[in-house]
Write a protein that binds this DNA or RNA. Structure first.
Lengths: 238, 238
DNA sequence: GAGTGGTCTAGACCACACG
DNA sequence: GTGTGGTCTAGACCACTCC
């Protein structure tokens, strides 16, 4: 059980914003007020406020105060990493995952380069179709370095691999690079996606890194054109 | 002239990473070493390191140290907000902007909702085609709230509106929400994009907010399928 | 001038990695 | 145990907004 004061403050305030105790477009108590309220130091309060700001909950304005943002404008999760399961649940649609292929392979050159593994390492390869409203609209191709994921079963693949990795294996995913583009469908796409007349697919490539900066997963998510949607929420750096 | 110590440290270290003084996959000096090196306090050093980490330059590992990441893996700008001008320059290709339409309009219902303006406000509407290798491959539709952008000229539109807003008008852009999806081309797309046989376009919608959380710009960027590419670099929260 | 958030300091203790 | 980064404190001064 962690005991981070700033995290506690952050989570409490998120809760208050979500349940309406703190209303959109109103001013938050000043940092000094919060110091008294939470009986802590100012830097700790500020750390919580910075997190709220970075996650799109509030807006800090020097000399004036911090203001609650209207989250209803942003009807999507403030995050670039959304699993299919989350997405489907959010849309309230029935969905299904079909495991097409599931095996341990020796990586080819392309994979060796992208996963930073040698030909001697083993790599899990998982091909899954995602079905919604009776149509297979997404093909997910996942590759995991066996060094980090020693055990994987077909049952896990039918659920959320993502949850398995984070919750069961306790792998700490730290950052991901994403590339999105459009290309013509491969023979594989035709086999595993109900393409109808669409003659292109949207490809989302994901390179997932662990906390120690080692790449452990490479994913290609191939979407039928009409069912693709991506939402991103970006803050400006300096 | 600002005099942020932590920003100075951050910028110096970015420079050292870029020019190779700090090499990929090596360990940084410890925080305590850096405190001595820069004659400052640990929290200040940590602020700089946190920024480096958030911007993908380093990776901090508790109990071990901070490590320089191999930026060559991430051959694209670490940012979701890339202007066409930046992109074209990075690719080293000749490019041109054609201003198709440029006028002050009264917002319709759709715009009123998205720009949070009333029917009495005025809104700048700018339609620009982006040309590369002699083909118009992108149609940019920009709408600005006149309240924030009182003056706009055709000349500015032919360059980078983005730079004009930030550098000349000193508008501080704080965050942006982005939506990406694919749809069939409109009559407008056919007129202003050299679509060839492609019967879909990739639409990137951008909602840009100022520091006080007011929405001042709504942009639609419509790309020919084959010329579309989006790169994103996401850190995990918490 | 009073109040706000932004930066900075010099300490302290903790959790974790490694030998 | 030693060294690392993670959290926290109780101050201080500054830059900005508003009255």
């Amino acid at each position: 059980m962690k005991n981070n004061k700033y995290l506690t403050i952050y989570e409490e305030m998120v809760e208050q914003i979500k349940n309406g105790t703190l209303k959109p477009n109103t001013k938050l108590p000043s940092e000094n007020d919060l110091v008294e309220q939470y009986d802590t130091s100012r830097e700790t309060v500020r750390k919580a406020l910075t997190m709220l700001s970075q996650n799109g909950y509030i807006q800090k304005v020097r000399g004036k105060g911090s203001f609650v943002l209207d989250m209803t404008k942003f009807d999507f999760p403030i995050s670039g990493l959304v699993s299919f399961k989350e997405l489907a649940q959010k849309m309230g649609k029935p969905w299904k995952t079909i495991v097409n292929e599931f095996e341990l392979i020796k990586p080819d050159d392309y994979l060796q380069k992208h996963l930073s593994v040698t030909g001697k390492d083993s790599v899990w390869k998982v091909l899954r179709s995602r079905e919604m409203d009776g149509e297979r609209i997404i093909l997910d191709k996942d590759y995991f370095n066996k060094k980090y994921v020693p055990i994987l079963t077909k049952e896990i693949c039918e659920g959320s691999i993502y949850e398995y990795l984070e919750e069961d294996l306790q792998l700490k995913i730290s950052f991901a690079k994403k590339e999105i583009y459009v290309e013509e469908p491969t023979e594989e796409d035709c086999r595993y996606i109900d393409l109808q007349d669409y003659n292109h697919v949207v490809v989302v490539k994901n390179f997932v890194y662990l906390e120690d900066a080692s790449l452990f997963q490479y994913t290609e998510s191939r979407h039928r054109l009409d069912k693709f949607r991506f939402v991103d929420f970006a803050r400006r750096g300096h």
